[in-house]
Design a protein around this nucleic acid. Structure first.
Lengths: 203, 203
DNA sequence: TGTTATGTACACCGCCCTGTGTGCTTACGG
DNA sequence: CCGTAAGCACACAGGGCGGTGTACATAACA
């Protein structure tokens, strides 16, 4: 069954209702949250009948899981694949988020679902660990003494900035970037090639 | 830990139903989240009739706001008022949270309510800013070069650890504490007192 | 052509939620 | 003692939610 997983708008037989549903959920779940988005509204936004939606997904939970599963490409890839930046610049670029980003949906999902056993919560953990791993890879490339530690630290900074931005309604990523710069400089033994700002502690 | 009897509000003849309601909401909203806690369940836990609850609070929103408003004493005070610690130790003690703490309820509330105009969201902002201010005060006491910046940075670390703990279901505060130690040491010009501890082993 | 998978339109169910209306019981203060 | 206000028990309204049943329409492919 369902061999229609052709990625680009699977023009198999129907007219891609499944993609429209996922696309609508990407938008609505982000804008309004998961619990505040009803299936009626979602189906209306996707221009899909409710019956069709429930033929593609056994329930809302499965849709939520798929919504989280399909996320990495949009945020993760854009930063780490830039070859025009040095590894150190790439680490810092992770904190240059466009102001359009509302909030990391994985944090929101973990709070809203409130069930660590939920499949979507598992995807959230996977994503968070994947981000930390990629940060660690880049940290290793940059010559950090303990790449795993630095990766975990930078990941924590990103999450902190995301959470704080949400609560305070004010961009907290510059603060996180400043911390990241300090951590990176402290973690890289002695790199003369980079433009790192040696900090003489005020003075 | 419901030690609800005899609040200062018990001036009337009633048996402090209001305090019981707030106490129950403290527990249930934290354990289950706001949206997942119905008024029926809450009233049952508080041993209060639903009618009484709605005579004390015009609606659930008002109760949620009050739930957030009454929080600072339990978490905030315990750390900053310890005179047995040096300012630097006090800053680090903010990351020594007991494992009983589920998650900063302000972050959860901001996600669950999803409305920056909600009065509870305003309380959340006030609290976050108050914590940052107290951290800044302590940082100033510790002799930091830029206390406000350090306070904001440490506050971000706390929020990041809270969010990450929630998503990954694993304690992230040790990592945050390690970052905090680096930031503090970098921010304090030259600690002649030299009370800096040995480097904590960060997992 | 016909079959089958896919999608549509709309009504519908049961559940749980916030919030009320109504009448009754209790505790206190004068 | 009685009066009054706080609190209680119970039922119920109104609505949104997730999810389903049924009958019909369309596109692809044999």
């Amino acid at each position: 069954m369902t061999e229609l997983e052709k990625g680009p708008t699977g023009r198999r037989r129907g007219r891609g209702a499944r993609e429209r549903i996922i696309s609508a959920s990407q938008q609505l779940f982000r804008e309004q949250g998961i619990n505040r988005t009803g299936m009626d509204q979602l189906c209306a936004a996707a221009q899909v009948s409710k019956r069709t939606a429930y033929q593609h997904f056994t329930g809302k939970d499965e849709l939520v899981a798929e919504y989280l599963r399909r996320f990495d490409p949009s945020v993760l890839s854009g930063v780490f694949d830039r070859t025009d930046l040095t590894p150190r610049e790439r680490l810092l670029a992770a904190f240059d988020i466009p102001p359009t980003t509302p909030l990391c949906p994985y944090i929101a999902a973990a709070v809203e679902l409130h069930d660590p056993q939920h499949p979507a919560s598992q995807y959230a953990r996977d994503y968070k660990e994947a981000v930390a791993a990629r940060l660690a890879d880049t940290a290793r490339e940059a010559g950090a003494a303990d790449p795993e530690q630095l990766g975990e630290q930078l990941a924590l900074l990103i999450d902190g900035a995301a959470a704080r931005t949400r609560v305070l309604n004010a961009d907290a990523f510059p603060t996180a970037a400043a911390i990241a710069a300090v951590l990176i400089d402290n973690a890289i033994p002695a790199t003369a090639s980079d433009d790192r700002r040696r900090e003489e502690v005020s003075s």
